[in-house]
Design a protein around this nucleic acid. Structure first.
Lengths: 231, 231
DNA sequence: GAGAGAAATATTGTCTACAATAATGACAGA
DNA sequence: TCTGTCATTATTGTAGACAATATTTCTCTC
């Protein structure tokens, strides 16, 4: 986490970081690729100072890896990284769901309804489902983190965990989500939160993230076997 | 989190960050105090470049607050910050305990025994107990995070959450721990982990952190009232 | 004396240049 | 052909200077 208080005017370094972040998360800069200070300074027509600061911010987000005296690269997220990320997600998102159930109340129902409808429409359009955490799936989770009222949880998820998981997505484009099953789980979580039942909300969220990880792990296993077979 | 791979040689910026970190966590640099780049560069006889990088690292740890174009200060941790930190701790440490129960097995018993004995000796020496998370209390929690096998949890706790809570300690030196009650809770958590009972370990850890927060919150309330009374 | 505005000063953000380090390429020997 | 050594090159880390911004001080008016 970082406690840089930013308001209106944005530093060059922060703008660079945002742009590089987008390039990294959309796959334009693939995991492993080199982020040389001099090349980036030239590309963005700035000095190396703000480039270094930007790389520091991206390193902090966990999507760039800096080796002192050697340079920075887009981070490669391996299976064990993904596992650790999912375990942390399980913890934080279960806590968020529990807290959200205390905070949200009935007036959150329309928001959840909208999110779930959106998600349902997405699944109808793509029954096999896109990869984990397409936007409506992600939105659902972010809303719960917001409703938790804990800015730290929200920050860790949105600034670090989700971007890092996006890197996994860049690397494994053919991994699919769990479609209607996941949606059903979302619905139950939302209902528990709306009903103020924190214990059940937390438990269902744990289960949901665990299920997502189990499915993903299986697919990663297959992908890695295919990679080995192809080598 | 930061993904700077550091091995043997340490950068000036990292050495500065470590030294400043120590100054901040021991209270030599109190919350709110100003960390000017020029003053620090002069104090450490280096240029402002590595000072800036060091401040970036400390900001990332959450113990320094940087306002663009205005400078850096040691962060002040307020009550709502502390609450958020404890909620995140609850989530992460319960998960760590659950995972540790799967990983640790019986051979962790001597280590726990040692930690608990140490903690017991500390409480015997100070029955009223020092402030939250004295070293043996902290060690117990760190060991569980290590046993969890999740490097991310360990990193968040030791790099960010505990240092930030140390800042709270700097501000509230008269807040006491829970003495023998906390030790008893530790013992039960350790037993559950050694027995491989992840569900109970996680539940007991949740309860433990929650209890610690409840006690701390009460004391913070009193301290703040006294502060107001004194003003 | 209080408040507003301008000027002066201090500090941070960025740029440029040099020092330090790692990576790459060339060459010799087994 | 492969391996090890050395030289060269590229890049990162740091220092110092200038530009940009915020803070402090001073002056004037009410």
């Amino acid at each position: 986490m970082s406690t840089i208080m930013t308001e209106s005017r944005t530093l060059v370094s922060e703008r660079l970081a945002a742009e590089l972040r987008d390039d990294i998360l959309c796959g334009a800069l693939v995991p492993g690729s080199r982020l040389g200070e001099m090349a980036l300074a030239e590309r963005f027509a700035v000095s190396r100072g703000p480039v270094r600061a930007a790389l520091g911010l991206l390193s902090e987000a966990g999507i760039v890896q800096i080796v002192p005296n050697s340079g920075a690269r887009v981070r490669i997220i391996g299976r064990s990284d993904a596992r650790a990320l999912y375990q942390v997600r399980t913890a934080l998102e279960a806590e968020a769901a529990t807290l959200a159930a205390s905070n949200a109340g009935r007036h959150a129902a329309p928001r959840f309804r909208q999110l779930l409808d959106q998600h349902g429409a997405q699944i109808a359009a793509h029954p096999e489902g896109a990869y984990l955490q397409a936007s409506s799936d992600r939105d659902f989770h972010v809303v719960i983190a917001e409703l938790s009222g804990n800015p730290l949880i929200l920050r860790y998820l949105t600034r670090e965990l989700y971007p890092q998981l996006s890197l996994l997505r860049v690397k494994h484009r053919n991994v699919t989500g769990r479609g209607a099953v996941a949606l059903k789980e979302h619905e139950r979580i939302a209902a528990a939160i709306i009903d103020g039942d924190g214990e059940i909300a937390g438990l269902l969220m744990r289960r949901h993230i665990r299920n997502s990880w189990t499915a993903l792990e299986m697919q990663l296993s297959q992908t890695e076997q295919e990679d080995e077979t192809r080598t």
